[in-house]
Design a protein around this nucleic acid. Sequence first.
RNA 1: GUGGAUGUAGCUCAGGGGUAGAGUGCCUGACUGUGGAUCAGGAGGUCGUGGGUUCAAAUCCCAUCAUCCACCCCA
Length: 445
Amino acid sequence: MSTFIKPRVPRGMRDILPEQMIRRQYVIDVIRDVFEEFGFEPLQTPALELSEVLTGKYGPDAEKLIYQAGHTGGKEDISLRYDLSVPLCRVIAMYPQLPKPFKRYQIDPVWRAERPQKGRYRQFFQCDADTVGSESMLADAENVNLVYQVLSRLGFKQFEININDRKLITGIGQYAGVPTAQLGGLYRSIDKLDKIGVDGVIAELRENEIPEDVIEKLIELLQIGGDAADVLTDMNQRLGSSEIAREGIADLEKLINHLTILGVPEQYYRVNVAMVRGLEYYTGPIYETVVEEPKIGSITGGGRYDELIGSFSKQSYPATGTSFGIERIIDVMEEFDMFPVSVGKTVTQVLMTVFDDQLMDESLKLATVLRQGGIRTEMYFRPTKISAQLKYAGNKGIPYAVILGSDELAGGNAAVRDLTTREQENVPLDKVVETIKSMIRTVSD
RNA sequence: GUGGAUGUAGCUCAGGGGUAGAGUGCCUGACUGUGGAUCAGGAGGUCGUGGGUUCAAAUCCCAUCAUCCACCCCA
């Protein structure tokens, strides 16, 4: 009878303990604020979807990573959602009355049956903002602007939003004359440019038996750099004969112009024709943010998917969106200690100590006053030594303690102790709230 | 899915075929009204799990699971 189950969680999943949760909430709050600032509305969908909703959307590689969620006796074939975009498309098709453009955000977990490692989990949160029903490049520019706004508000200094376009990529493939069957491998190789360098890409293309003259053409294209407008002009000259490439270039030109007007500084984005992205459903502009340090892959990703809703309904809609990976953003922020001091270890602001049994009631009353004054207050439940109570508060990271002993009470006071500076002062009982509030304000300024 | 490394106290880790170690943290006391110092005590581990070899396994072998790293792919 006394056999215990070893407590553990499924592979690649983890508990998020309070200290960690406080940081997550801070990041999520920043993201949500920005989303709502741009007029995106909240949406929630089930964690589980019918498998048929998810299959055939992401491409064969990604589809293998969908978590099956069948249960004994279950009559429906269901799976855990792989992302938030496909469920959104299902929603659009199910509720045609939603006014367009429909702008929604969703912050929820998704599941992928991958092998976990740093920055890669089997359950992780995505924060998506998407616009459905507008083909304007303004919507895409807004996506990029969201990324810029969120990351700069979180204190990121070094990041680069890579921008490309699926139409342009297709044009490049045509221009190079690569057979359709080999296009996937081709894109995968050039996507690694930043990682393995030009020589690495050449080697890989040769391995894939891409003709030498094609490789040469491609490498020339991929090495085009400079500011966004120049890259696009250059591309236009070289690929102008391809209609699809021209469309992609025109889209990107509009997008870049909008970014300029919106005030997104040029240093934070670049047109990178070597950036591909794996998901099959993208049809137009795509974007992805990478940070150099730590090497954690992309922290945001997104793009336009004009055909996806059409797989659920006769009435299709153009759509575009972007996604933030909270886990990776937090990993980066922890690595560089980017959390403001106001994001502490605990939500509690004050520990109300209890001096002895006789004074318990007085402490309880004062705790209530503190809470009514808007101060998050934990009551110590046992009249142990003050030293133990202060130690508890200190360990927990509670910034202030209020001590109500017989001496203080005799003078109509309570002692307010700053656990960080170890300074304390006696304050009249009716001034305690005010005193603590001003202390909190001073620290967060 | 492929390859590699690791798994010993709450945490960081040492050790190594014969009674399980350090640092740190934790608890108690010196300190009967004040948490980072000092001193003195103390608790805490079937050495990831299962099997095998052996008189004897934490140690050697096999398997398995978990974590980390690389690949693949991705947030």
